[in-house]
Amino acid sequence: MSETAHLDHSEKKAFLVNSSSLKEVRNFCREVFEKLQIQQELKDELVLAIAEAAQNIVKHAFKNSADVNELMVVEISCENNKLQIAFYDRGTPVDPKKVKHREIDNVKPGGLGTFFIQEIMDAVEFKDGNKPWINHLVLTKQL
């Protein structure tokens, strides 16, 4: 937890669901975290966690979809030094019970994204997606 008081602020942006959007997602996060005056090391971690969550949407929620016009929305809010990042998408419904990372000692490619998210954030929660959204993921961290 940092001792710096961060500004209350909220911003959201929609991105096309494809791998080439991931860089735009990172740049959006970096810009917002700059405004929130989050220090570099924490900023790098948060950007990684958000990018991994966005990547999971591209890889898993839309793995059988050929529709390149689908959107995902990333919303970053900070209130009373509590950071909340919400993701909204209309992909395949996520079963939270099936979202798990690989055993960290079982070294093989893949299965690390969820581990990184859990390592970096305080809480990871799948909420009911209100229409038109199907999935609503919320990551939180006390700054």
Binding site: L22, R26, D44, V47, L48, A51, E52, Q55, P109, G110, L112, G113, F115, F116
Partner: peptide, 10 residues
Amino acid sequence: QYMDSSGISV
């Protein structure tokens, strides 16, 4: 300067 889990997999 940036690598995610996909890069780590590589």
